[in-house]
Write a protein that binds this DNA or RNA. Sequence first.
DNA 1: CTGTTCGTACGAGAACCACCGTAGTACATC
DNA 2: GATGTACTACGGTGGTTCTCGTACGAACAG
Lengths: 137, 137
Amino acid sequence: MRADVTDTATTRALPHPGPAEIRLEAVLHALSDPIRLSIVRDLAGTPDELACSYFDLPVTKSTTTHHFRVLREAGVVRQTYRGTAKMNGLRGEELEGLFPGLLDSVLTAAAAEEARRAGSGPPADGAAAGPDRAEAV
Amino acid sequence: MRADVTDTATTRALPHPGPAEIRLEAVLHALSDPIRLSIVRDLAGTPDELACSYFDLPVTKSTTTHHFRVLREAGVVRQTYRGTAKMNGLRGEELEGLFPGLLDSVLTAAAAEEARRAGSGPPADGAAAGPDRAEAV
DNA sequence: CTGTTCGTACGAGAACCACCGTAGTACATC
DNA sequence: GATGTACTACGGTGGTTCTCGTACGAACAG
């Protein structure tokens, strides 16, 4: 039994790539999926860490786990266990150090595209410009 | 044999997405492939348009065609026929208008990663400490 | 201990993608 | 017309990714 774990509750450790292991292509690929991009946008919108169960994604739990794993292995998010929950935090500072401005411009672009899409597309029926949590970056 | 072509030489037109059709995910996906990223970097390094045959890629011509098609359909490059050659130009201004700073930060990131890779690979030690600092959480 | 909640592992199937080789089109030149 | 160049389309293969369902493990409240 490893008694070397100094922490109390967070014993299950997850493998994360170090800053030198993070590959640009992997980051871009991780961000090129709509579901993962929405996760990243949500994470960027709050200073807190969010549990996996917080996200309301149109896929099953298995698939959600898969997407979070891709994000973690690409070096985009950091995951830590906290009781039964797994908390997710954006590795914003590290990414900024490696690729200055990249994450920010992607988030801005995502917001711009969403605004563009919402502004010129939807006039079909009632619900106009749903004010569902505007991600102000 | 259609002789109805009104233009002189360069009339074979290729389908390009309009600015409103360009999707962020598609752009990120197009840039997440090493070969395509190197193409984009080459294009960004020159003000001229470059023929497909200019590039020295480690794949066959069929695959090269495939990659250029992906870039074109994502809205990253513009392709025009010029005699037998097909010239490729970056759609930099349009992308800048849609996603300000995105292309620039990706190019900067690619250059940074290449420098990092070239600089810290061979030497046993250098500036940065070990590749993986234990993830202190 | 029992049950609940949260997330993972394991298959497994469908879709996609990168890659290739061959055959074919379009253009320029001879 | 014949030859050569530049690129495309088609067909196919192997690998990866996305998705799911089910079964399992870890933490916690009774």
